Amino acid sequence: MQIFVKTLTGKTITSEVEPSDTIENVKAKIQDKEGIPPDQQRLIFAGKQLEDGRTLSDYNIQKESTLHLVLR
Protein backbone atom coordinates (compact mmCIF):
# COMPACT_ATOMS: atom_id res chain seq x y z
CA MET A 1 0.00 0.00 0.00
CA GLN A 2 1.06 3.60 -0.42
CA ILE A 3 1.54 6.07 2.39
CA PHE A 4 2.67 9.67 2.31
CA VAL A 5 5.31 11.21 4.52
CA LYS A 6 5.21 14.98 4.78
CA THR A 7 8.37 16.79 5.83
CA LEU A 8 8.55 20.12 7.65
CA THR A 9 9.64 21.78 4.42
CA GLY A 10 6.30 20.76 2.91
CA LYS A 11 7.78 18.07 0.69
CA THR A 12 5.74 14.88 0.45
CA ILE A 13 7.51 11.53 0.10
CA THR A 14 5.50 8.59 -1.22
CA SER A 15 6.43 5.21 0.19
CA GLU A 16 5.33 1.68 -0.68
CA VAL A 17 4.74 -0.25 2.56
CA GLU A 18 2.85 -3.17 4.09
CA PRO A 19 0.61 -2.88 7.18
CA SER A 20 2.95 -5.38 8.87
CA ASP A 21 6.00 -3.13 8.31
CA THR A 22 7.56 -1.75 11.46
CA ILE A 23 8.11 1.96 11.98
CA GLU A 24 11.84 1.18 11.88
CA ASN A 25 11.30 -0.29 8.43
CA VAL A 26 9.49 2.81 7.22
CA LYS A 27 12.33 5.00 8.52
CA ALA A 28 14.80 2.86 6.55
CA LYS A 29 12.75 3.47 3.39
CA ILE A 30 12.80 7.20 4.08
CA GLN A 31 16.58 6.97 4.50
CA ASP A 32 16.84 5.26 1.10
CA LYS A 33 14.87 8.07 -0.55
CA GLU A 34 16.06 11.10 1.39
CA GLY A 35 19.35 10.09 3.00
CA ILE A 36 18.11 11.00 6.49
CA PRO A 37 19.47 8.61 9.15
CA PRO A 38 16.63 6.82 11.01
CA ASP A 39 17.96 7.97 14.38
CA GLN A 40 17.25 11.56 13.32
CA GLN A 41 13.72 10.80 12.20
CA ARG A 42 10.59 11.12 14.28
CA LEU A 43 7.36 10.03 12.65
CA ILE A 44 4.07 11.48 13.84
CA PHE A 45 0.59 10.20 13.00
CA ALA A 46 -2.66 11.51 14.47
CA GLY A 47 -0.64 13.57 16.94
CA LYS A 48 1.26 10.55 18.27
CA GLN A 49 4.94 9.84 17.95
CA LEU A 50 5.41 6.39 16.42
CA GLU A 51 7.68 3.89 18.16
CA ASP A 52 10.23 1.92 16.14
CA GLY A 53 9.18 -1.54 17.29
CA ARG A 54 5.50 -1.13 16.45
CA THR A 55 3.90 -1.82 13.08
CA LEU A 56 1.80 0.42 10.87
CA SER A 57 -1.26 -1.70 11.63
CA ASP A 58 -0.65 -1.19 15.38
CA TYR A 59 -1.35 2.47 14.76
CA ASN A 60 -4.20 1.77 12.34
CA ILE A 61 -2.28 3.46 9.52
CA GLN A 62 -4.02 2.59 6.27
CA LYS A 63 -3.35 3.18 2.60
CA GLU A 64 -2.83 6.78 1.62
CA SER A 65 -2.42 7.87 5.25
CA THR A 66 -0.11 10.83 5.74
CA LEU A 67 2.61 10.67 8.38
CA HIS A 68 4.58 13.71 9.46
CA LEU A 69 8.35 13.57 9.59
CA VAL A 70 10.13 15.68 12.20
CA LEU A 71 13.91 15.71 12.44
CA ARG A 72 15.63 15.76 15.80
Rank of each mutant, 00 (worst) to 15 (best):
K33G: 06
A46H: 13
E64C: 11
G53A: 10
K27Q: 03
P37T: 06
Q2G: 06
Q2S: 10
I3T: 00
M1H: 05
L43W: 01
K29C: 04
L56H: 00
G10E: 03
V70F: 12
R42I: 15
I44P: 00
V26M: 05
T9P: 05
Q49K: 09
K29I: 12
E16I: 14
N60W: 04
F4R: 07
A28V: 11
N60H: 09
I30S: 02
T22H: 04
Q41E: 02
P19H: 05
L71I: 13
Q40I: 11
E34K: 05
T12G: 03
E34Q: 07
V5G: 01
F4V: 06
T66Q: 05
T55Y: 05
P19F: 06
G47S: 04
R54M: 12
E51L: 09
A46S: 08
D32K: 13
L71R: 08
G47W: 04
R72A: 13
L50S: 00
K33C: 07
T66Y: 07
R42A: 10
H68L: 15
Q40F: 09
D39V: 08
E18D: 12
H68R: 08
R42W: 11
I44G: 02
G35Y: 03
T14Y: 09
T9G: 13
K48W: 06
M1W: 09
P38C: 10
E64G: 15
D58N: 05
P37Q: 06
Q49C: 14
V70R: 10
N25W: 10
I23W: 02
R54W: 10
Q2K: 14
P19N: 05
S20M: 09
D32A: 14
Q62D: 09
G47F: 04
T66W: 07
E64V: 03
T66F: 07
A46Q: 15
V70N: 05
E34I: 15
I13N: 02
K11G: 07
Q49A: 12
K63H: 15
T12D: 03
K48I: 14
L71M: 10
T55W: 03
R42D: 11
G10N: 05
D32Y: 10
T7Y: 14
V70M: 11
M1R: 04
E16V: 12
D21R: 02
D32S: 12
G35A: 05
S15Y: 15
D58A: 04
E51Q: 10
Y59R: 01
T22F: 08
Q40D: 10
T12F: 09
T14S: 10
N60M: 08
G10W: 03
P37F: 05
D58I: 02
A46R: 14
D39C: 12
Q31S: 13
L69Y: 01
R54S: 07
R42Y: 13
V5K: 00
V5R: 00
T66M: 09
I23R: 00
S65P: 02
P37D: 08
E16K: 09
R72I: 15
S57N: 09
E18W: 13
I61N: 01
I13R: 01
T9I: 07
G47P: 01
R72Y: 12
S20P: 03
V17H: 13
L8P: 15
R72D: 11
N25F: 11
L67I: 13
L67K: 00
V17G: 02
N25H: 12
I30H: 01
N60F: 07
H68V: 13
Q40G: 06
T66P: 02
Q40W: 11
R42K: 12
G53I: 07
T9F: 13
I36W: 14
G47V: 02
K29T: 07
F4S: 06
Q2I: 15
L67W: 00
K48S: 08
K6C: 13
N60Q: 08
V26K: 00
S15L: 15
K27Y: 06
T55G: 02
T66L: 10
E24I: 11
R72G: 11
L8D: 11
E34W: 15
D58V: 03
L71N: 06
E18L: 14
L50G: 00
D58Y: 14
K29E: 04
Y59Q: 03
E18I: 12
G47M: 04
M1C: 04
G10P: 02
Q40M: 12
K27T: 03
K48H: 11
S65H: 06
Q31V: 06
S57L: 11
K33T: 12
G47I: 01
P38S: 14
T9Q: 12
L8T: 14
A28Y: 12
S20Y: 11
E34C: 15
S15G: 06
Q49R: 09
I30M: 03
V26T: 02
T55L: 08
Q40E: 11
T9A: 12
L50P: 00
D21P: 00
V70D: 06
K29G: 06
V26R: 01
G35P: 03
Q40Y: 09
Q62N: 09
S20C: 09
N25Y: 11
S57P: 02
G47E: 04
K33D: 06
I61H: 01
E24R: 14
I23G: 00
Q2R: 15
L56N: 01
P37A: 09
T55K: 10
H68G: 04
R72V: 14
Q40K: 11
P19Y: 07
T14N: 06
A28E: 09
K11Q: 09
E34A: 14
K27P: 01
G53N: 12
S57H: 10
Q40R: 12
K27D: 00
G10S: 03
N25R: 14
T55H: 05
V70W: 09
Q62P: 09
L71E: 08
R72L: 14
T22M: 07
K63R: 12
T12I: 15
E34T: 15
T9D: 14
T22A: 05
I61G: 01
P19C: 06
E34P: 03
V26S: 00
K48G: 05
P38T: 15
L67R: 00
S15W: 14
D52M: 05
K48N: 10
T14Q: 09
E18F: 14
N60Y: 06
A28D: 06
R54A: 08
S57F: 10
L43F: 04
E18G: 08
L43E: 01
E24S: 12
N60T: 04
I36E: 02
K33I: 14
I30K: 00
K6S: 06
N25V: 14
E16Y: 14
S65G: 06
P38H: 12
E34M: 15
T22W: 04
L43V: 03
T7N: 06
Y59P: 01
K63T: 13
I61E: 01
I36R: 03
P19E: 07
S65D: 14
P37N: 07
S20H: 11
T7P: 04
D52W: 03
V17F: 12
I61L: 03
V26E: 01
T55V: 06
D39R: 11
Q49F: 15
F45K: 03
R72Q: 12
D39E: 13
I61Q: 00
V70K: 07
E51F: 07
E16C: 14
K11L: 10
L50Q: 01
Q2M: 13
L8C: 15
V5A: 02
E18Y: 15
E64R: 08
S57C: 04
R54F: 12
L50D: 00
L50V: 03
G35E: 04
G47L: 03
D58Q: 07
K27L: 11
F45I: 03
K63F: 07
T22S: 07
E24F: 14
D58F: 13
M1G: 04
D21A: 07
T14W: 08
S20F: 11
Q41W: 10
L69W: 00
R72K: 13
G35C: 05
D52Q: 04
Q2L: 14
T66E: 07
M1I: 11
E51R: 09
D39K: 10
L50E: 01
D39A: 11
